[in-house]
């Protein structure tokens, strides 16, 4: 195979390839170490971490839906201190960039988590999650208005010089507007989409399938929505976009990049195939090689009308 330059940049961070893990679907990486050589990944994105431990929602927390799933995990996590002592300590010994997903019930909590992580050398970047649909206070509430999204971004930016990515909610009328608001406050990149708010009801018991009632939809079912949103955001901001939502294979990843993503994340597909990230990486390299594309970054935005149609 001809050598394809797979490197991409997100802010100051150079990744060896554009494929990372989606927060909350890969634990801290340790759970997948039996199945995936982590040093081959573009980055590991950890589950969301808050200041205090959060116990998450009641069970059932998941329900399968056509080509996807609903989850209402509710950001269960051990709190930033235990996270640093256990998960980050383990990740420090792995040869892979680490992006930590940050959550909070308040602007101050986001800022406090960011401040604590800023002093951890193993952390390459922060991904500020203003888009979790599964908590009552905080979470998605910060991602659905420009003012709140800007406020969280400003507060976190003030606490860290690390690469700062803001994770956007699809549960809004105009996602590009939110993207512009966080870019203006100093975000080095944006990631999207988080899960789409959804619901499923058991027609046998007449009760919602999730204990919480509503949850977030992920998996291949949401991919067309995600690709559309990546397209809109990438055309609206100058910072790099990390695209996700139903990526299962190299073609799916390429689709996000053609829409304008600089990198992609694999989420629900990890549950189906624990080594899904590796087949996406290998497949993407092959995809480029077969088409004479020397640098994977050339795919970014290649479907935009001003780039012209590709000769086939």
């Amino acid at each position: 195979m001809s050598a394809v330059d797979m490197r991409v940049r997100i802010g100051d961070l150079e990744l060896r390839n554009p494929v990372m893990t989606a927060s909350g679907t890969f634990g801290s990486g340790r759970e997948y170490a039996e199945f995936v050589d982590l040093s081959r990944l573009g980055a590991v994105v950890t589950k969301g971490v808050s200041i205090e431990p959060w116990s998450g929602n009641e069970s059932p927390r998941i329900a399968e839906t056509p080509c996807g799933m609903l989850n209402s995990i509710g950001l269960q996590n051990p709190g930033v201190e235990a996270f640093c002592a256990n998960d980050l300590a383990w990740l420090a010994a792995q040869d892979v960039p680490v992006i930590v997903n940050v959550v909070g019930h308040s602007v101050d909590e986001y800022a406090a988590v960011a401040a604590q992580l800023d002093s951890e050398p193993v952390v390459s970047a922060l991904e500020v999650n203003i888009s979790c649909p599964n908590v009552d206070a905080g979470g998605m509430a910060f991602g659905t208005t420009c003012a709140a999204a800007a406020e969280v971004t400003r507060a976190v930016r003030a606490e860290t010089r690390k690469t700062l990515v803001v994770k956007l909610s699809p549960n809004v009328t105009d996602i590009a507007e939110i993207a512009r608001a966080v870019e203006a406050e100093g975000a080095d990149g944006v990631s999207l989409i988080n899960t789409l708010l959804g619901m499923a009801i058991d027609t046998r018991t007449f009760a919602p399938k999730l204990a919480r009632g509503v949850g977030g939809l992920s998996g291949p079912a949401i991919r067309p929505v995600a690709v559309r949103m990546v397209w809109e955001v990438a055309r609206a901001v100058a910072v790099p976009v990390i695209g996700m939502g139903g990526v299962t294979c190299a073609e799916d990843a390429a689709e996000f990049m053609l829409a304008g993503a600089a990198a992609v994340a694999v989420g629900t597909a990890n549950f189906v195939e624990p080594s899904a990230t590796l087949s996406v990486i290998d497949g993407l390299e092959r995809f480029c090689a077969e088409r004479g594309i020397a640098r994977v970054a050339e795919l970014t935005g290649a479907a935009w009308p001003e780039r012209g149609k590709r000769e086939t």
Binding site: T25, G27, G56, N71, P274
Partner: peptide, 15 residues
């Protein structure tokens, strides 16, 4: 028994 997504400890579906 719990509903399980990953089966390997990563997703916290099965608590």
């Amino acid at each position: 028994e719990r509903l399980m997504a990953c089966g390997i400890g990563a997703c916290l579906s099965c608590v």
